[in-house]
Nucleic acid binder design. Structure first.
Lengths: 227, 227
DNA sequence: CGAGTTTTTGAAGGACATCAACGTCTGTGG
DNA sequence: CCACAGACGTTGATGTCCTTCAAAAACTCG
């Protein structure tokens, strides 16, 4: 596991790949300078080092953002679900990679229009600011997880977080595979797998659909682990 | 080491402690609604859960921000040096704690004045936005460190980062003690200490002044470790 | 100088990684 | 619809990096 890109996906820089822009009726979010884009499982939205021409808001599906070290080690800093904003950064180049975890639709906004966008639509500006601050909050929480939690606690926190962010009952349908979870939690896939089976043994969760669906059987028990 | 607060420091919520506001002539940064505050070593600027009335910019000294788990485990997400902005968050309450590592002077800005501040002084708004994005970038880098680097790599990255952010030659005068470094890097103080002595043995660094000053003897060697 | 704090060093243990093999699922073509 | 290949996930055995527990050394400040 050394590439950030998924196995069969081709590398298509987002800035060049404007195909996939739909002609759907535009909602309030989609003012001028915003374009809807579609990405298949494993496709790259942008890569570390790419020009940060656009930033994005997820319409549907899941996007992973993260960094890749020279020797192949990977850290996924966040999964972005519907409504989340990603790709807004300080420099003029992207400092991390963004890829589609499953079938994804995003709205791309030109960063150069950031100021005018905010000026024309202050509410949108507020929303963006809030989205960035949410990202920062999440980053802080995730640093605690990475630096100070055990594998069991990491897994419990992750599952509860996914359950909270997803609609639906105490059942999480994970869009990502074990490798992604491992690289998000700072673990190996083996430890992720072992931790999940231990949780099943302890009656905390139940697995279904090839381990992709996780029923939170004992939410209170999990919350006890979510330090 | 179970409290976030340092040993002999009293807990003084910043919002109440407006003593220490100086009458110094104000620079460009210090518009109305901005107040200079001073904190002694270990003093609390604000605590997790406090009303997020103010956000801050460091004038001099070093501030640590981070979180404390119920059982005493601590994660310091960042050290803020002169010029850095901290305490700007999404909710109306602070989600983490901020404390003075050494003698610190900050400028406190009312968050409620954020909009008008930005309106009256667009350059200041730009600066703030940039500061936040810098914080986010740093958070991303730190997640890679916490999730995927070895103790040696963590220490090398930390030292190079401190050297880069501090003025001066290849010599870092660390304002914080080992406990803070450990809680920043997701290690124990013993591992921090052992890693430093190993670096000395390997000729990468030299220690001086009770281990508080670190000379980067082999910067290239350290950069090799900074994956 | 001496008490308390901070740092270093040592010995032993444990949580997670690594290496390896097997099981299971998915999608495609016969 | 079934068979098969490749991808994905689980399980097992062993190793190692870092933690934990313990104590001594060095530093700080009255």
């Amino acid at each position: 596991m050394q590439a950030f890109t998924a196995t069969s996906a081709s590398r298509i820089p987002a800035a060049l790949a404007m195909r996939g822009v739909s002609a759907l009726p535009r909602g309030a979010d989609e003012a001028q300078h915003a374009a809807r884009q579609r990405f298949a499982r494993g496709e790259e939205v942008f890569a570390e080092g790419d020009a940060g021409t656009y930033f994005y808001k997820v319409v549907s599906g899941t996007v992973r953002t993260g960094k890749l070290l020279a020797d192949g080690r990977r850290q996924i800093d966040a999964f972005h679900l519907a409504g989340d904003v990603f790709g807004l950064e300080s420099g003029d180049r992207h400092r991390f990679t963004a890829e589609a975890v499953d079938e994804v639709v995003v709205i791309a906004y030109r960063r150069s229009r950031f100021a005018s966008l905010v000026h024309d639509d202050p509410a949108f500006g507020e929303q963006l600011m809030a989205a960035m601050l949410t990202n920062l909050d999440r980053a802080h929480d995730h640093m605690v997880l990475l630096g100070r939690k055990s594998a069991l606690e990491k897994m419990a926190s992750f599952l509860l977080d996914m359950a909270r962010r997803h609609p639906g009952a105490d059942k999480v349908v994970l869009p990502m595979q074990r490798t992604d979870i491992a690289d998000h939690l700072g673990l190996t896939i083996e430890t992720v797998s072992r931790t999940l089976t231990q949780m099943v043994r302890d009656g905390l969760i139940r697995l279904a659909e090839a381990g992709r669906t996780i029923v939170l059987a004992d939410k209170a028990g999990l919350q006890l682990l979510d330090a």
